[in-house]
Design a protein around this nucleic acid. Structure first.
Lengths: 131, 131
DNA sequence: TCTCCTGTGTAATGATATTACATTCATTGC
DNA sequence: GCAATGAATGTAATATCATTACACAGGAGA
């Protein structure tokens, strides 16, 4: 797997996501990059599109936000799962081979050709439950 | 399980979703109900909130749309999964006990208390692949 | 009756995402 | 060198999705 050659905007967007301690919306990214020259949503969305392609960033469908991949070096792709804490906003990224194979089974049995799978558990994380 | 006593607006929104042959966005529902007196998005969103509570309607997070539950009589809840065709828009609703238990396992092991789980496979359905 | 709760009507606004069009810049082939 | 090409970028406008705020109507129960 060769490293991708990121453009300036892609670097900045990925940097903003990596520096954050949780998922960010596109408009939040935009705000954080305004003093670095960003002016319009499209600059963010275009960079995100590429970063999503490269697998360096994930989109959290259920909260319209984006996170840097937790394992940017091992591109062990397939369908990832996310646990999203509704209290603190923290996200845990994980994958489960059994879940993946069960969903793949269903798809095969039903002649469905999957392109992108979202598995998102919203709830309360251990840290927030402890409070 | 007692049948829910739906209000007029809830009936109309559920009716619109049941009559549709695929998921609808809130604004599409609004448009379809304009000649029945609907005027504002909130009328739709409020009805949807209740219908979601009752389990009569599901929200497809990845496409910001809503569908009538495919099994409104057997409220076999838990985390449902959806296969969404990006060509024709048709949605298949299904559930898989193994997937559910694996995700429940992960949650227990990590002290995460789930409230709502979304499992959505986007891709191409058998019918569209056959074309 | 009074209060409380739920549902409703309406306007305004906020939040997320895309379309359209012009420009810049590096690369390639002549 | 220099046109041709394609990717990335800049900007404005607009489309799409969702919520806040406030007012009113009607039923259930003290």
């Amino acid at each position: 797997m060769t490293a991708h050659d990121l453009t300036k905007n892609q670097e900045m967007v990925l940097g903003a996501l990596s520096a954050a301690d949780g998922p960010l919306s596109a408009y939040t990214i935009l705000d954080r990059l305004r003093d670095r020259g960003f002016r319009a949503p499209l600059q963010v969305y275009r960079a995100l599109d590429k970063l999503l392609d490269y697998g360096l960033v994930h989109r959290l469908e259920s909260i319209n936000s984006f996170v840097a991949c937790a394992h940017p070096h091992c591109h062990a792709h397939g369908s990832l799962a996310f646990a999203i804490c509704e209290k603190c906003g923290q996200v845990e990224e994980f994958s489960d081979a059994t879940v993946q194979s069960r969903l793949a089974d269903w798809s095969r049995e039903h002649g469905f050709k999957p392109s992108k799978t979202a598995i998102e558990i919203r709830g309360t994380c251990a840290a927030c439950l402890a409070v």
